Amino acid sequence: MSVSNAYMTLSGAVDADVLRDEPLSRRTSYRIGGPAALVVVAHSYGALQRTLEVLAQEGVEWVLLGKGSNVLVSDKGYDGCVVLLDGEFSRMTVCAEEATITAGGGAQLARVVNQAMKSGLSGLEFCVGIPGTLGGAVSMDAGTRREWIGPRVRDLVVLRPGEGMHRYAGGEIEWGYRRTSLPTSEIILEATLELEPGDPAVITRDMEERLRRRREAQPLSKPSCGSVFRNPPERSAGLLIQSCGLSGAEQGAAQISPEHANFIVNRGGATAADVVALIRRAHDAVLERHGVDLACEVKLLGF
């Protein structure tokens, strides 16, 4: 593997920002993590395709990162290349006649949700307050326990590394709570969401109420990755952890939030090791007391 060769080949040769030893604490919502050996912020499809070609030629492992809102990076960092999408991947268009929004995989989900509201298109209110990119949201079928973004996807354009682009109809994909049938190797380039005409004032009030409830129930003032565990069927992961007496439990500068026990927050200076220790502690306590094997939805990088 030659990160140096990849860096020299890509620097100045593609429509991308190419960085060495970039601290990933700057690119994750946890504000935790060591450096990535290489970071490439691709601004165009050609740059992305060329980047993946060079990484394959040099044998450099890579991972796609959105806004880093559900990722915990090792304190040692990541030896491979972190790829991010920007530029043309952040574009967004609205078709009022068809009640659709088409946006790139790198577009911030918050921008898409706000554009829907301004355009009088209803159907994404449940996504308000969810961080990350549209591509990340679609890849994990983000949403609430009852509403997911997947059923709103009319069609999807992905890049299959080494093969090229492929288009899916939304109905070809299996959607479920925090899961999809999309191969993890495919990169979401663009998605078209099918919505319904609505009253912008009504949509705004709905979004404001949802945000109010979210602020009251979740520790949004401290860095975190959101929910740590998936909710088991008909159960609340947070309440299960709370019932084990772990609300407020600390490890270094990491803490199981007293406000919502399914959040582990960084109180300032927490390490990835601190967070992992609390994840294991919560998982093992719930398994021992309730016999429930909680599934962690935090993606670990560099471990």
Rank of each mutant, 00 (worst) to 15 (best):
V54G: 05
L55I: 10
L55C: 06
A56P: 02
A56M: 01
E58S: 04
E58P: 00
E58W: 00
G59S: 10
G59T: 12
V60A: 07
W62A: 07
V63E: 13
L64C: 03
L64K: 01
L64T: 06
L65P: 07
L65R: 08
G66K: 11
G66Y: 10
K67S: 08
G68H: 08
S69M: 02
S69F: 02
S69E: 11
N70G: 10
N70R: 13
L72K: 05
L72P: 00
V73S: 02
V73G: 00
V73Y: 01
S74P: 12
D75L: 01
K76D: 10
K76I: 03
G77F: 05
G77A: 08
D79R: 13
G80W: 01
G80Q: 11
C81G: 09
C81V: 07
V82R: 14
V83S: 14
V83H: 12
L84R: 15
D86Q: 14
G87D: 11
G87S: 15
E88L: 03
S90M: 06
S90D: 11
R91G: 11
R91I: 02
M92Q: 10
M92I: 11
T93E: 14
T93Y: 00
V94C: 04
V94M: 04
V94K: 12
C95W: 06
C95Q: 15
A96L: 03
A96H: 03
E97S: 13
E97F: 01
E97C: 01
E98M: 05
E98P: 04
E98V: 09
T100N: 08
I101Y: 14
I101H: 14
I101N: 15
T102C: 03
A103V: 10
G104K: 09
G104A: 08
G105N: 10
G105D: 02
G106Y: 07
A107L: 06
Q108D: 06
L109R: 11
A110L: 07
R111D: 10
R111S: 05
V112C: 09
V113M: 06
V113L: 05
N114H: 12
N114W: 06
N114V: 03
Q115V: 03
Q115R: 13
A116E: 04
A116Q: 06
M117W: 02
M117A: 13
K118I: 00
S119C: 03
S119L: 09
S119Y: 00
S119R: 13
G120K: 03
G120N: 09
L121E: 11
L121V: 12
L121D: 10
S122H: 07
G123A: 12
G123Y: 04
L124Y: 14
L124T: 08
E125S: 13
F126Y: 05
C127W: 09
I130E: 09
I130Q: 09
P131R: 13
